[in-house]
Nucleic acid binder design. Structure first.
Length: 788
DNA sequence: AAGTCGCGGCTTTTT
DNA sequence: GCCGCGACTT
């Protein structure tokens, strides 16, 4: 028997993973171990052995990954049978299923999908209606809490009665969250809307409560594959368990070392539980890395071994040793940005890299700014993933709100957003009145507007409401016979939305107009794209469009993935990706590991896994950088180098200094003095000596440096010099309170006037003897309590 | 009713 | 340092 061509080039464990067709299969796949190749080849192998694509469900982490896998399967098989695969993210696959089944749960088929902003907005409304203070019950805090509950399969009733949960809410002084949760869930239902978590939760409910639906999908999905299994949460686990129960042909792929989403309920327990839930789970480990140099792999291994509790495995590679990892210290975050831009320029010239070979990774979105600025200044094309997305822009949200309302008039969030935009004379007062009536009559806001006369509205307001309703109704008739794009164009015309923006000739107005045009183009593109995935229907309706648009991940929104540009993103967003050259920035205590995560072993280990993910994105070259000080909340804050840096062996590192102004950096061999160290001392930086001891003297500024490369950082304001006492030992911020006499490392002695800002980030107002009154962030400043 | 100004809160990470 | 919100203005 001849071996199928696609098995050639697979190593032994890969081959085993691919050819194990039946039964539960757990693949532990280290970073860069050919996981995607295994998954796609396995799907191809299933199909080559007679499995119908209709019977395969594959759950991936992004829709883009799904698309790519589909294409690769088609390539392997040399036909287009793969188009019938059911493949996508958990959220988009379930949204698609729910669209057909929503009526069973009392939702309209065209249910709206609320993104995080929508959820918070609804929460704010609900919180105010319950006469609670939204300053205390902050919508995002409440939302996180509700989201966590949903992901753990805890409904409102159980939430209210669970002793442990209630204790937690009591301790946080937020006892009414249970009440808010119930009201929020009811409001979403009334609005005909599901939030992100509902897409999972309602899918679970559907399978749990509707036996016919369970049977239908169990029968359909004879083979199930799940990627990034370490990042699944309990709802996802339960859903896939239900779906797989009939055939038990379930293959999950994950790497516990890359589990980085516990904050949204993911747990690697799912991997361990998997082995308990099924009999005879076959375990395959993919440990050979094909992506990175040996040095990168060694460093990654060294760091991750500091975590306790892992599934035993060792990543190894036959790849070349490669260069040492460049560990770079800079003075400020702006210098860090300049260093990255300079180095990219240099590497392009010297080693013929292209822009797209580079990625800049960071812990928080806020860090993108300094990189962005430097790259722009150097004229290097770049693209930022994440942060404020296209669809979060006001003008886009407004436009989409119209489309949402047309599809689902129950969607109160959408209605409120556009009822008076553009201005049509339905002001705040009238709207509030209508909301009250809707709540009293337990009907929707749109229905109140529809019977505005009967509800006592008069004159111009009445007329405006009637016109508005008539217009929306008109769009709905269009929708019955037109595709998403045609309806969207008509909306723009009739509402004057487009004209209004067109007439705004300011720069921002112009940008907004262009954004709306881009939106229309993208709708057009979507409408014209062939979409016969399951061969059942070609649905180019507005409702279908809206449901998929909300679920696009950042990677999916990249409309030109082949563009030659440097890529900037958080490490989370870089999961599953690889780049020839990687910069990881801001590797400092309080940033990475993040200050929020240093209080428990679990959280710290997740930060370390995140660091591991960052490092293993690099194929050829890796730069790790940290700044002595960086701007945070508008002021310069000093940070220690990250503890993770100490976990890497010196022998694999190439430590350099790239202070503000150094044009040339890594490995340039300069070593003629320490002008920068002196300059830093003069500017009041205190950690230069320590850093020099640790990392050796920094190379001096290159004599020919252009003035434009001088530090952009203004010198800190003059302070009256204070020499800390000999026994200076910073006190715990939690021990500080108003009235105490304290000593600040730099500002000297003073008295705490008051402390604000909550326990997580206390800010003290301190009256100093010689330096006036200052606001000090206690988490960062070094302050000693002198006298209670 | 709409626009302007100043204050405060914010920074984890995302579907 | 930026964005959103509320208060205040026209």
């Amino acid at each position: 028997m001849t071996e199928p061509h696609y098995l050639k080039g697979l190593n032994e464990p890969q081959r085993e993973a691919v050819t194990t067709i039946n039964g539960p299969l757990l693949i532990i796949a280290g970073a860069g171990s050919g996981k995607t190749k295994v998954l796609t080849t396995r799907i191809a192998h299933l199909m080559a052995n007679g499995v119908d694509a209709f019977n395969i469900l594959a759950l991936t982490f992004t829709n883009k990954a799904a698309q790519e896998m589909k294409e690769r399967v088609e390539k392997i098989l040399g036909n287009n049978d793969a188009r019938n695969l059911y493949i996508g993210t958990f959220h988009s696959v379930f949204a698609r299923i729910l669209r057909g089944e929503a009526h069973k749960l009392g939702y309209p088929a065209n249910f709206t999908i609320y993104d995080t902003d929508d959820s918070r907005s609804v929460l704010k409304t609900v919180i105010n209606e319950l006469n609670l203070d939204d300053k205390h019950y902050k919508p995002n805090i409440v939302h996180n809490r509700i989201s966590a509950a949903k992901n753990a399969l805890v409904g409102p009733a159980e939430y209210a009665t669970d002793y442990y949960i209630q204790q937690e809410d009591m301790r946080a002084n937020r006892p009414a969250i249970a009440q808010i949760y119930a009201a929020y869930a009811a409001r979403c239902f009334k609005n005909g809307a599901m939030d992100f978590d509902d897409l999972l939760l309602k899918m679970y409910e559907l399978l749990k409560t509707h036996h016919d639906a369970l049977h239908k999908y169990q029968t359909k999905f004879k083979y199930i594959l799940i990627d990034e299994y370490q990042d699944t949460n309990p709802v996802q686990y339960q859903i896939t368990k239900l779906l797989a129960a009939m055939h038990e042909n379930i293959c999950v792929v994950g790497d516990d070392a890359q589990s980085i989403y516990s904050f949204r309920g993911a747990t690697i327990e799912n991997i361990l539980q998997f082995q308990k839930d099924y009999d005879d789970v076959k375990l395959v480990k993919l440990e050979q890395n094909y992506r990175s140099t040996d040095t990168i792999i060694k460093v990654a291994n060294e760091v991750i071994k500091n975590n306790k509790g892992q599934i035993p495995k060792l990543l190894w590679t036959e790849n070349a040793t490669g260069e040492k990892i460049k560990l770079v210290r800079t003075m400020t975050d702006n210098d860090e940005g300049k260093f990255v831009a300079d180095t990219i320029q240099e590497q392009k010239l010297r080693n013929h890299y292209e822009n797209k070979d580079f990625a800049v990774l960071y812990r928080t979105n806020a860090q993108s700014r300094s990189f962005e600025e430097s790259l722009r200044r150097m004229g290097i094309p770049y693209k930022i993933y994440g942060g404020l997305s296209f669809y979060q822009r006001k003008e886009i949200k407004d436009y989409i709100a119209y489309l949402r309302l047309i599809v689902n008039t129950k969607d109160e969030e959408a209605l409120k957003r556009i009822i008076n935009y553009p201005v049509r004379g339905i002001g705040k007062t009238s709207l509030e009145k209508a909301v009250i009536i809707a709540n009293e009559q337990n009907t929707t806001l749109f229905e109140v507007l529809q019977s505005a006369a009967a509800n006592g509205f008069k004159g111009a307001t009445l007329e405006a409401m009637q016109n508005f309703v008539t217009m929306i109704r008109y769009f709905q008739t269009l929708m019955a016979t037109n595709n998403a794009y045609d309806v969207a164009v008509q909306v723009g015309k009739h509402t004057n939305l487009v004209k209004e923006l067109f007439n705004d000739k300011t720069t921002e107005g112009l940008a907004r107009y262009e954004n709306v045009q881009e939106l229309l183009n993208s709708i057009k593109e979507w409408t014209e794209m062939p979409d016969n995935e399951d061969g059942e229907m070609v649905d180019k309706s507005l409702g279908s469009y809206l449901q998929q648009i909300t679920l696009l991940t950042d990677a999916d929104k990249d409309n030109d993935p082949d563009a030659d540009s440097v890529k900037l993103m958080t490490i989370h967003a870089a999961k599953g990706l690889e780049f020839k050259c990687v910069f990881v920035g801001g590797i400092e205590e309080t940033l990475f590991p993040n200050a929020m995560s240093i209080n428990s072993r679990e959280e710290l280990e997740e930060e370390r896994r995140l660091f591991y993910v960052a490092v293993t994105r690099a194929k050829e070259k890796l730069w790790l950088s940290y700044a002595n000080a960086r701007y945070r909340f508008g002021s310069l804050v000093q940070n220690e180098p990250s503890r993770f840096l100490e976990e890497m062996p010196d022998s694999l590192l190439d430590k350099t200094y790239a202070g503000g102004g150094a044009r040339n950096n890594a490995g340039n061999g300069f070593n003629n003095g320490s002008a920068f160290a002196r300059m830093q001392r003069g500017m009041g930086y205190s950690d230069v000596d320590a850093a020099e001891k640790k990392y050796g003297p920094p190379p001096a500024k290159k004599a020919s440096s252009k003035p434009s490369y001088m530090p952009a950082t203004p010198p800190p304001p003059k302070v009256v010099e204070h020499i800390p006492s000999a026994n200076f030992e910073p006190s715990d911020p939690h021990d500080m309170e108003a009235g105490q006499t304290v000593e600040h490392q730099k500002f000297g002695f003073g008295k705490i006037v008051k402390i604000e800002g909550g326990a997580h980030n206390p800010i003290a107002t301190i009256q100093f003897q010689h330096n006036g009154e200052k606001k000090i962030m206690l988490n960062y400043a070094k302050i000693r309590i002198v006298q209670q």
